[in-house]
Design a protein around this nucleic acid. Sequence first.
DNA 1: ATAGATGCAAAGAGTTTGCATAGGT
DNA 2: ACCTATGCAAACTCTTTGCATCTAT
Lengths: 134, 134
Amino acid sequence: MERRTPQRTAIEEALREAGRPLTPQELLELSRARVGSINLATIYRTLKMLTDAGDAVSVHIPGEPPRFEAAHIGHHHHFRCDECGRVFDITGCTGSMASLVPPGFKVREHEITLFGTCAECGKEPPGGAGTDRR
Amino acid sequence: MERRTPQRTAIEEALREAGRPLTPQELLELSRARVGSINLATIYRTLKMLTDAGDAVSVHIPGEPPRFEAAHIGHHHHFRCDECGRVFDITGCTGSMASLVPPGFKVREHEITLFGTCAECGKEPPGGAGTDRR
DNA sequence: ATAGATGCAAAGAGTTTGCATAGGT
DNA sequence: ACCTATGCAAACTCTTTGCATCTAT
């Protein structure tokens, strides 16, 4: 049977409240702020549990370490800012991708990642000092 | 100055002739078939060179190891078959993604990955024996 | 002859796993 | 009291790097 431990609670809360995809390392730090002691191995084990249960999903951005986010928001995609490195959730979707594939191919799911400049970084001169919030 | 070694030639040819994204490991095996001796470190070093030069691009499929392919085909996306695990190039594209992002965000590039069943696996009963060509 | 490329092995980074113990039920 | 979840450390996998050697130019 599944137990409700402070570590597990901390991880789930941190994940849910972040509202954006987190790396295991980030999650470790955020969880540690909630519960005194917690270990990276626990993060990985819990993350695996949560994704298997469908309560978390992994987000893979090319050239970036894998991140995880709570699965409460429905179908959505991601935007990575070239300047600050942050990853944002994008709720829109262009709809079916079925027209892209050759005959006989069936599309079950799709994943879109956008790259560009976020609103905040767009205001400042690109490459300006102190804009890296990664 | 850059030298034309048999190893480098083998890697470039293998990459180009594969016509699909290859993992470093796959590339090692295909390259080794062309030139007697070649090492994984050389694969990685050459791959890094090629991607820096824009002659190869990395392909990241969620939950899969990173792959690399020759950059000769222009803008395209990828389809991963749930059954056989193969990754296919998809030439179509739904066009601009600019409408998906919040105001102020600028889209420079996008990447789409489709998941589903390829034509070949679609013919056979799902989960049928001997269909895994991964 | 010179300098870049290769192979090998060691070093790193990220992730997983075995095992003893703490702690939830 | 029982048994799952945790923490720690070792093991693993993938990738990078240092260094001596080889080889294309």
